Amino acid sequence: MGIRVVVGEFDAGTGWDPVTVMARLLARALGAELVSVPHRRLSSRAYPVVARAPRRRGPLTTIVVAPQPVHLYALLDVAHWLPGSGLTAGWVIDSFLLDRLPAVARRRRHFDHLFVTDAEMVRDWADATGITTSWLPWGSDVLGRGSGQVVRPVDLQRVGRQPETWSDDDDVARLLGTRGLVYSGRPPFVPDVDGNQAAVMGAMARAKMTLSFTNRLSPAGYTHHSREYLTGRWVDAVACGARVAGVAPRCAATERLLWTGATVDLGGVDRREGLARVEEAAAAWTPATPGSIHRRALAQVDWRWRFAELVEVLHLEAPVLEADLATMQGSGTPPAPPLRGPG
């Protein structure tokens, strides 16, 4: 039985490149056909209408990677809906946006199983949809794109949005410079999903630490106003052997995927205290630090551990994935524990 991975895809540089790259990696790992449906197409008013139609059955297994709930509509794109599927699953990344639940995910009409990245939302999704729901948190391509390189000319690398006290790159660079430390602002944008992700992770691999704050302390119009959640910039950083300085989100994914040595708690958004803690962490850094972080990330953060859980739940065969896992274990990486979560 063939497998098809369908991903709702944003344009490059909009913050969703890690999800697009993950979908490509998933398709490779499963030996699946990869199909991208542009985000702009999924706003069509036709999809809620089609969602009320009977499900079309076919020989394929279809896995929809949905950056946001609306992208579950990618299952109904004409090219994919007409052939039908024998088994359909959806993997929702921004699963905290349950208030945007699309019609296609209601009443178990089109999906057989859902996966969400937020353990705290598993039961809410199951109750709202009537669909069996499991927890699959964030990951990173540690094996293929990670790094434990020792040469780290940057002490602190900015990644993504920051609270107001840390938002002025020139000012932060100046203040860290007075402490003998090197700061780097936003990585340059590359107008290509793969190239842009490579540029971001390349910048992380040249840094001892990256700078990130939970959405509770660094809100934006596109973040949730109350729920805290882990995102790709945290796991990509440790994949690249860098510690994450800032304030981590308080959630199950943080507890499961990060560890004490992976982060530098800055205590809040007060910059004076934060700069002192960054200086202290930089002084404690050794050439052994990146390799240690990278190995730990390989053991528990790599996307392939998430894929292994998905394969087990959906009863799929994935020889390419098995070979990758064998490579990781052959390098001394112990198997990651299952991540079933509540529900």
Rank of each mutant, 00 (worst) to 15 (best):
R271D: 01
V7Q: 05
G146I: 01
L316P: 00
S85H: 14
P188Y: 09
L230G: 02
R295K: 13
A220Y: 15
R100S: 14
S85P: 02
L87A: 05
L156T: 02
R306C: 09
R216F: 13
A205H: 02
L316Q: 09
A66W: 04
V301P: 05
T231L: 09
P290C: 06
G177Y: 09
L87H: 13
I3S: 10
Q149A: 15
G185M: 08
L75M: 03
L275F: 10
G148R: 11
P191H: 13
F189K: 12
R57I: 09
W91Y: 15
G86S: 12
R52T: 15
S147H: 03
T223S: 13
A308G: 04
M201F: 07
P342N: 11
A262T: 02
Y183V: 09
G268P: 04
E280T: 11
A89N: 07
Y229I: 09
Q162C: 05
V35G: 11
E273A: 14
V247G: 03
H80Q: 15
W305Q: 05
L275K: 05
T333P: 00
D127H: 12
G84Y: 11
P337G: 07
I93Q: 05
T61P: 00
A297G: 02
A282P: 03
G202I: 04
T263K: 01
D17F: 12
V92E: 06
P18H: 11
D77S: 08
V278T: 02
E228V: 05
D17K: 10
A245V: 03
E322L: 06
P163M: 12
M121I: 04
W16N: 04
V172E: 00
H315A: 14
V311Y: 11
L266D: 04
A105C: 03
A46I: 15
S212F: 11
V116N: 07
M201Y: 06
T210I: 10
P153R: 15
W125M: 06
M204N: 07
P290K: 00
V92S: 04
V238P: 03
A336T: 02
G185N: 06
A276V: 03
A262Y: 06
V104Q: 05
D192L: 02
A205K: 01
S147D: 00
W81H: 10
W16V: 02
S134V: 05
R57Y: 11
A323E: 14
H110F: 00
R24H: 14
D302P: 01
R56I: 09
D112K: 08
P191V: 13
R233T: 00
L257Y: 13
K208C: 02
T14F: 10
F115G: 00
R271Y: 07
T289Y: 10
V311R: 10
D194L: 13
P102C: 13
R108D: 07
P153S: 15
T263D: 07
R4G: 02
T289M: 08
P342C: 12
A276H: 02
A336S: 07
R100G: 02
